[in-house]
Amino acid sequence: MSHHPQSVGTARGLTASNEFATVLVERVGDDPALLRISDLRRGRSVVLDPLELEAITRMSRDEIRALADPSYAGTFGQRARGEDFDGMVGDDEMQIEGISG
């Protein structure tokens, strides 16, 4: 996977990438309603329906920033589940082992 800034099409969807993140946006099967967004660097994904996606269009830049705020465990572990570092380790020990040091 290249980490250079680019947006490329694949058989399944579109990849958006810059030096900070790489995500894939694709249809879920042939369902016209659902889009899956996958974080290709960490292997997580979320499926969003049109109303959820529409909601993003109504968000201000500050609200999107709040959504992206890494203050809680979202960066490496389950978003908002563990609100502190210890909780995050419990949720995602395997990932943390790989990144420590």
Partner: peptide
Amino acid sequence: HGWMYGNDGKLVGMSLAGGDAG
């Protein structure tokens, strides 16, 4: 350490901010 900034330079958030280690 994953600190995040807006492209206007403003700090959006410090990663893993909470808890006794935060």
